[in-house]
Design a protein around this nucleic acid. Structure first.
Lengths: 182, 182
DNA sequence: TGTACATCAGTGAACGCGCGTTCACTGATGTAC
DNA sequence: TGTACATCAGTGAACGCGCGTTCACTGATGTAC
């Protein structure tokens, strides 16, 4: 890839993250392009669809989360390790929820579907490792599987975004959900 | 109000509920009008804005929920009474979440704001009565206030709507959230 | 190192679309007699 | 009960808008010599 193309691609991704964080995942692609300082055609050259853009962002996030997840089994407290990781998931959840919603609405192309499935599996595996470890140590008694737990965490993260007036809301809700796992 | 106007108003409300349930709260007003079998002008005659329509729906829902809530203190188990009521809240949550989102995006007119505040207070009072009673009886130990608890319930209800492939998801998530209150 | 050129990326005006919303007109309702 | 009419409600084509998306053109890059 040419160096100017690489730079623009990165700027679009960075702008998309900022705009998604500010306006939610239904933000306008033209606004993202404008915010990145590129024409709409440039955005489309790199990301032929909204889903492609979301998948690029979520892939980054998932890899980050899974890298964190691979280090956490070293944490002395299995319960705390899981809680720390779930809080990290919440922070990265904007793009993910948008992606899930976009996936529901329209059928994706095969490449997008495959990327999504890979992300889903990767994060599920990372979460399952932490959850199982915590359970084996008796730090978790709640009967819930990884997918449901991630759904709850993403849901409360989304609710918190819709109430920006209360900056401590996400923390309180996560405490309620996550500390109650014991 | 003239009888034909009353009938159309009711049909619009009914159609709006159905469309919101199917497509989420960002559904198109023209589609709602079409689904109700009236022209868009008729919809606007009764509900001058999307918020007015949502407020009409949510007011109904809130009154229904609060009527249920007023009967539940008669339930022998204070803990179960709260859980039953929270499940009822989840079922009625589509319109409410849409309303909250709409409220965030744009400033409302004073009348809409007043109706919303009244709804908010009414449902908060009903929930607080059930929560306090359960707590006094030792059925609840979780440190969470009514507003946060309702936010979590609405959040998981919304997440479940986005995953229509799994019809038992809402039940499982509510069980996780609600049964863990003890 | 310097230059010429082929290739790739960026631009942004323009398109079609569906949205929310309006309004001049038509039609139904209910009342007065 | 029957009829005339004033009033209120419904209609739906049309408007402006911002959206996602395209594409003919311009410009930057990097390579070959």
């Amino acid at each position: 890839m040419r160096s100017d193309a690489r730079g623009n691609r990165d700027r679009v991704l960075q702008a998309a993250r900022a705009v998604f964080a500010e306006q939610g995942a239904q933000a306008s692609l033209n606004k993202i392009a404008q915010s990145a300082g590129v024409g709409p055609g440039t955005l489309y050259r790199h990301f032929p669809s909204l889903q492609a853009l979301l998948v690029a962002i979520i892939s980054d996030d998932v890899h980050t989360l899974c890298a964190t997840g691979r280090e956490l089994p070293a944490h002395p407290s299995p319960g705390d390790a899981l809680r720390i990781w779930l809080r990290a998931v919440a922070v990265h959840s904007t793009a993910m929820r948008g992606l899930v919603a976009a996936q529901m609405v329209t059928a994706s192309d095969p490449a997008t579907d495959a990327s999504l499935a890979a992300c889903h599996e990767e994060i599920g595996t990372a979460g399952a490792a932490l959850l199982d470890r915590a359970r084996r140590h008796g730090a978790i008694t709640a009967e819930i599987d990884v997918a449901d737990l991630l759904t709850v965490v993403n849901a409360v993260a989304g609710a918190s975004e819709q109430t920006p007036d209360d900056p401590h809301l996400l923390g309180r809700l996560l405490t309620f959900v996550v500390d109650r796992l014991v």
